[in-house]
């Protein structure tokens, strides 16, 4: 047995890659549909949106690039489907330079799917450099940073923007982010203007932002593919559109494989240490 463990400790790392690869590929062909239970921090956003009335406005800040599409885009799509279904209006910016086109594409796609009209149901203000200053400016007046929208339209000419001056005219700020822009929203939007703030972040970022959820600086927090899958379930997204839900099944098998490998690695370590 000890010899087996000794061999295990010297195993070529490429075997680990192969095992992980197999654990990921096989579940693609056998969808089980493992249960996904909504956690309190994810449900908080869903409930807050459900409590909104038709015509209310939410401020939406998507800030992710192509590299983080798998984790953040399913959250963004689920959130937009829910707000548009509730006839809640959306004013959005794209303050991450590499993600502006994605932000615009997502908004347009979801609005088209839900039959929403630009300028009346949603507005995309676009990008300006130095996000923290832009966030601070918008707390006074959206027009300070964005006299025109992403498409060059005069913001005052857009029906939705009439009577919409700054964050205080919106019910909440929701940022789906894969960058440190999340800190700017916490510091300069919630910290300065005390607007309810929710974040959707990549899993790798989640531990950093639980601190803010714990302290109440965030009223909701979605982390990674798991958070996205929970949100999809609550919104009721089914079939191929529920990308996070489909992939969470596969992710669970990958995690299982990793857990088994970690246990084996530890067993091997302790077994061989005894011999020394």
């Amino acid at each position: 047995m000890k010899e087996f463990f000794q061999k295990l400790l010297k195993i070529d790392r490429r075997w680990i890659f192969l095992i992980t690869g197999v654990a990921i590929v096989i579940p693609f062909f056998f969808f089980i549909g493992l249960p996904i239970k909504a956690t309190r921090e994810v449900r908080a956003l869903y409930d807050a949106v459900e409590a909104l009335k038709p015509g209310d406005v939410v401020f939406y800040a998507p800030e992710y690039d192509p590299a983080t599409i798998p984790e953040v885009q399913p959250m963004a799509h689920a959130f937009l489907r829910q707000v548009f279904r509730k006839n809640v209006r959306v004013v959005a910016t794209g303050l991450f330079q590499l993600g502006v086109a994605l932000a615009e594409q997502d908004l347009t796609l979801m609005a088209k799917e839900m039959g929403k009209k630009y300028g009346e149901d949603y507005v995309f203000l676009g990008y300006k450099p130095y996000p923290e200053q832009v966030i601070l400016n918008m707390g006074e007046d959206f027009r300070k940073s964005f006299p025109t929208d992403y498409y060059g339209n005069d913001v005052n000419a857009l029906p939705m923007m009439r009577g919409l001056k700054n964050y205080s005219d919106t019910k909440m700020i929701v940022s789906m982010t894969a960058v440190s822009g999340a800190d700017y929203w916490i510091r300069s939007a919630h910290g300065r203007y005390n607007i309810p703030l929710a974040l959707g972040v990549t899993a790798v970022m989640a531990t950093d932002y639980y601190t803010y959820y714990q302290s109440g600086q965030l009223f909701a927090l979605m982390g990674g593919l798991k958070g996205a899958a929970e949100y999809e379930q609550m919104v009721g997204i089914k079939g191929k559109a529920a990308k996070a839900t489909l992939r969470m099944d596969i992710q669970s098998f990958a995690h299982l494989a990793i857990i088994i490998l970690v246990i084996l690695g530890n067993l091997a370590y302790f077994a061989t240490r005894e011999k020394k």
Partner: peptide, 15 residues
């Protein structure tokens, strides 16, 4: 969570 994040990216690529 880092492992989870990287797995999500790998799964998307294999998808």
């Amino acid at each position: 969570l880092t492992v989870m994040s990287r797995m999500s990216l790998l799964i998307a690529r294999i998808d």
